[in-house]
């Protein structure tokens, strides 16, 4: 064994617990180094996390042109465009059940009421804050439009109104279109269209309920 360096020896005389102290300090240093965030921030892409690999900084890549995703073949022209040839179709391309109409109501209330209002009269909240006022759905012109026309407006937009193709899936667009028809009928209805047994109920309900949602 080599003789000990004299300066270390004198240190040990002066600070007898030096070794223990140094090891505690080392342990603490290791412990604080262990606070790395490698597991918290793993090098993987989660939705919308940026990327420094691609020039545009996005980890979600644009789909190359001509790619057909699963279920996106869009062979069914009527379903995806609302047109048959050049003409708007006047029928929803699947059976309209109560469920479809309820779905349509829900989606309409999310995506369209801000401007068109719950009744479709064009007096939504955003319009009251200065957006261009859309026409009411309850005009003869819009009542006579085939249902494919409404689908088309949601898909491609119309004048000052942007399209809703990114926010509303095709099937839901049809459901909304069907619900717009319901709204149109509802504003045309007379009391004679209501079966006599629910008339009484309707009268009492109308007096307590307003068309605007409770908030």
């Amino acid at each position: 064994m080599k003789p000990r360096n004299s300066s270390t020896a004198s240190l040990r005389v002066r600070y007898p617990k030096l070794r223990i102290r140094i090891s505690i300090a080392l342990l603490l240093a290791c412990a604080s180094l262990a606070c790395r965030r490698d597991m918290q921030d793993q090098p993987k892409y989660i939705p919308l996390r940026g990327s420094d690999f691609f020039a545009d900084g996005r980890s979600a890549r644009p789909i190359p042109e001509g790619t057909v995703a699963r279920g996106e073949l869009r062979a069914d022209k009527v379903f995806f465009t609302g047109k048959s040839g050049d003409q708007f179709v006047d029928q929803v391309p699947f059976p309209v059940t109560r469920q479809v109409l309820e779905r349509g109501e829900e989606r309409f209330n999310i995506y369209c009421t801000p401007c068109h209002g719950r009744l479709g009269n064009g007096l939504g909240m955003i319009v009251r804050r200065g957006f261009k006022r859309p026409p009411s759905y309850h005009t003869d012109r819009l009542r006579q439009k085939p249902i494919g026309y409404f689908y088309d407006i949601m898909t491609n937009g119309f004048g000052a109104m942007q399209d809703y193709s990114a926010q509303v899936a095709p099937r839901d667009r049809w459901a909304i279109a069907a619900y717009i028809r319901v709204l149109q009928y509802s504003q045309m209805a007379s009391i004679n269209d209501v079966p006599p047994d629910v008339r009484q109920e309707l009268n009492s309900e109308l007096s307590t309920r307003s068309a605007e949602p409770k908030r």
Binding site: P114, F131, A166
Partner: peptide, 12 residues
């Protein structure tokens, strides 16, 4: 996406 904001803020 930005487009959603522009649905309204194209005019407001």
């Amino acid at each position: 996406p930005t487009k959603t904001c522009m649905n309204c803020h194209s005019q407001i």
